[in-house]
């Protein structure tokens, strides 16, 4: 196999700050409890929450999976896509909005927040986010590959260290 480089996307600190500012404005305008931007694989780019929350990584992955599943349904129905997805529970509601081709905007809110208002604000925010994030795809990576030669070596050593011999798991720790 040849040594081709894998496709990658570098998100600059500047872009993350702009995304965070968008999410903060959305939270202030809507009274939502959580908003976050994830990629289509569910990886969290930025998140804003009214309270400390754990499990955001899992939430991102499951929402991205549900979204991917719905896009396959759209394909079967010969629908172009489902741009907006709404999940309604007794307390929590989740809106997932398509942002450009790579990203999703996820907003959690409760029954006191109007769905219609969220839809409008989410559409507006998604359009701003698309402009910010699409610019990242067009820019050359800020982390130059040559500089990474040392990093790659260090990463490989770390992988050897962790996976080289079977890690000591909870079952085989000395008591």
């Amino acid at each position: 196999m040849s040594e081709r480089k894998t496709e990658r996307l570098v998100i600059s600190p500047d872009a993350v700050a702009q995304v965070a500012a968008c999410l903060q404005r959305l939270m202030a305008d809507s009274n939502a409890s959580l908003s976050m931007v994830i990629d289509r694989a569910g990886r969290v780019i930025a998140a804003e929450s009214r309270e400390q929350r754990s499990g955001l990584a899992d939430l991102g992955v499951l929402i991205a999976a549900a979204y991917a599943s719905l896009q396959e349904i759209a394909r079967l129905l010969k629908e172009e896509s489902f741009q907006t997805v709404l999940h309604e529970g007794l307390r929590e509601r989740i809106v997932t909005e398509t942002v450009s081709t790579h990203w999703l905007l996820v907003v959690l809110f409760d029954e006191q927040v109007q769905v219609g208002l969220i839809r409008v604000l989410v559409k507006r925010t998604a359009s701003t986010l698309a402009a910010i994030l699409d610019l990242q795809k067009q820019r050359a990576p800020r982390v130059a590959r040559p500089r990474q030669k040392q990093s790659r070596r260090a990463a490989q050593d770390t992988i050897d260290l962790i996976f080289g011999k079977e890690p000591q798991g909870p079952d085989n720790h000395p008591s």
Partner: peptide
């Protein structure tokens, strides 16, 4: 696609 978040 690998994702590199420089800020985080």
């Amino acid at each position: 696609m690998a994702l590199i978040n420089v800020a985080a």
